[in-house]
């Protein structure tokens, strides 16, 4: 398998600049979560990857080479606008689509059987797609993306409209494909799901990637924050040079170690905080505070013109990691 590289894509619709130099890559065997608000450019990026749209500038590479029609045919794609022939039976439709992706008639039929079994729509093979519930149509749509055993998966909002069981099935399938070495990229607004499922995440805002990295990387803050559950902070915080109380609520104190201070720069500088707190009374909890993906996302997409993932505001709610 290979890496799917999205390099400096730009695209304008009239005067609207949908993409302004979007770049990221999806490596073999990883699940890449592509998040951003509506209209940020996720669907446009995916359509360009699949060749359904042409970019104004920039390049999509597969295995180090500009992607071509043959490579695209080996991608499994789930468009944002779900689409199947409404009056064509499920089985025939999946077989047809798999054959369009280059499978022989027999292999296509086998794949159709396998995926309808896996995704729990086996008993609907003979039914017209329009007779299925939306959730089942979605499963068929995923089967259509998977049936030709793709080299890469590009899925636009694959989880929207699925019940919890279907979400689990879908998650397992994506993990399984990634473990088989397939690069998987999907967009979603369900950030808890992205956080749980993805190896790396990219956040897009107004056509620009504002953060790309592993969840851990994104959550690593520029200044470390620690939560102390113990004696009220006001009584001991002054004893730690470079420490500043971000919030003081009863027994819970959130402390920030400013860079440039002795404690902030030295490795293990947080130990001074713990010692100071213990000196004042018993400590029940001491942990590093990391923002959730949801918080990161809110920050990133709401701070217009801010400098990416590092931009934080003091007002946000923080939870222990």
């Amino acid at each position: 398998m290979a890496t799917l590289e999205i390099d400096s894509l730009t695209k304008s619709y009239g005067s609207v600049r949908a993409l302004r130099g979007t770049s990221f890559d999806v490596r073999a065997g990883e699940i890449f979560g592509f998040v951003g608000s509506n209209g940020a450019g996720k669907t446009t990026t995916m359509r360009i990857v699949l060749g359904v749209l042409a970019a104004d500038a920039g390049e999509v590479r597969w295995d180090g080479r500009p992607i071509d029609a043959d490579a695209r045919r080996r991608i499994g794609y789930m468009p944002e606008e779900r689409g199947l022939y409404p009056r064509m039976p499920v089985g025939d439709q999946l077989t047809y689509l798999a054959r369009l992706h280059g499978l022989s008639a027999g292999a296509a039929r086998d794949a159709m059987t396998r995926w309808t079994d896996t995704l729990g729509v086996a008993e609907r093979r003979g039914d017209e797609v329009q007779k299925l519930s939306l959730g089942n149509q979605q499963r068929v749509q995923l089967a259509a993306a998977l049936a030709h055993d793709p080299d890469a998966l590009v899925l636009d909002e694959p989880f929207s409209g699925l019940d919890p069981v279907a979400v689990d099935v879908m998650s397992d399938v994506l993990r399984d494909r990634a473990d088989a070495g397939v690069p998987v990229v999907f967009s979603s607004h369900q950030l808890d799901l992205v956080e749980r499922l993805c190896d790396r995440v990219g956040i897009i805002r107004d056509g620009e990637m504002v953060a790309v990295g592993t969840i851990a990387e994104l959550r690593r803050t520029e200044t470390e924050r620690w939560v102390v559950d113990g004696p009220p902070g006001a009584s001991w915080i002054g004893a730690v040079p470079g420490a500043r109380a971000v919030s003081l609520e009863g027994s819970r104190t959130v402390v920030e170690l400013a860079p440039g201070s002795r404690a902030g720069d030295a490795p293990g500088g947080e130990q001074a905080v713990l010692h100071a707190a213990l000196a004042a009374g018993p400590v029940h909890e001491f942990a590093v505070v990391r923002p959730s993906l949801t918080e990161l996302y809110r920050d990133v997409v709401s701070s217009a013109g801010a400098d990416g993932a590092a931009a934080r505001t003091e007002t946000k709610e923080e939870v222990p990691a």
Binding site: L50, V52, R72
Partner: peptide, 8 residues
């Protein structure tokens, strides 16, 4: 469905 088809 045309989007799915034109990806192929």
């Amino acid at each position: 469905v045309v989007e799915l088809l034109l990806a192929t």
